[in-house]
């Protein structure tokens, strides 16, 4: 554990809590892509199956259980409890165009051709693009609530901090995982446009609005 990973994990945790708080306080999931949230639930469910096969640390297990359960809770809140507020008309990204190619790639490019390993690879690839339905939705509506922007900033920062963690681990532990690093870089690049808007607008007290 190094400082980058710790802050990265905390940022990820903060993102999830922010999203749940936003939905709970406003009793609404307006502006949130249910498709991205389903993809995140799928990411966690396929990656953390190793909860049953290997124990790493209490921290590791607690975080994994937290991520799986909160992602399922988020999906439940969006599609059941607050369904009336879900903006499905704007959430029209075709997720099969992500899941099918990513599934194929996980079969072809992985560290080991075994079920758990392929599922882990699938989750890493899927996570890197899972935010696309959310970004697509924002570009369609042309705006984002400030709390949604904070959520996305925390969520995007987490993988950027993991890149610093991988640089650190490469130099000080000789550890390097090409699949995670490439996918993590792709994931972070997808957020760059949003990061720019966040820094130039939200941090100056304005909402994110995009030209039509």
């Amino acid at each position: 554990m190094n400082i980058f990973r710790l802050i990265g994990d905390m940022s990820h945790l903060l993102a999830i809590i922010l999203l749940l708080l936003k939905m709970w306080k406003t009793r609404s999931c307006a502006g949130i892509s249910g498709k991205s949230q389903i993809l995140f639930a799928l990411v966690f469910a396929s990656r953390y199956l190793d909860l049953f096969t290997s124990f790493v640390s209490v921290y590791n297990s607690v975080m994994k259980i937290f991520f799986i359960s909160t992602s399922l809770l988020t999906v439940y809140l969006m599609y059941f409890k607050f369904r009336a507020t879900y903006d499905s008309n704007h959430d029209t990204f075709r997720v099969e165009f992500l899941v099918i190619p990513v599934g194929g790639l996980a079969f072809l490019v992985n560290h080991e051709f075994s079920p758990l390993e392929i599922l882990w690879t699938f989750s890493i690839y899927l996570e890197s693009v899972a935010i696309l339905p959310q970004l697509f939705m924002m570009s369609k509506t042309g705006e984002a609530e400030t709390i949604t922007s904070h959520y996305l900033f925390a969520l995007g920062s987490y993988r950027a901090l993991y890149i610093l963690n991988w640089v650190y681990r490469y130099y000080f532990e000789g550890f390097f995982d090409l699949i995670a690093v490439v996918a993590g870089c792709v994931q972070t690049i997808l957020y760059c446009d949003f990061f720019y808007l966040y820094i130039t607008k939200v941090l100056k007290g304005k909402r994110i609005t995009l030209p039509a």
């Binding site: 994990d9 190793d50 290997s54």
Partner: peptide
């Protein structure tokens, strides 16, 4: 193997 080490990442 290296991917044992990887298991501690989230």
């Amino acid at each position: 193997k290296d991917w044992i080490k990887r298991k501690d990442e989230l």
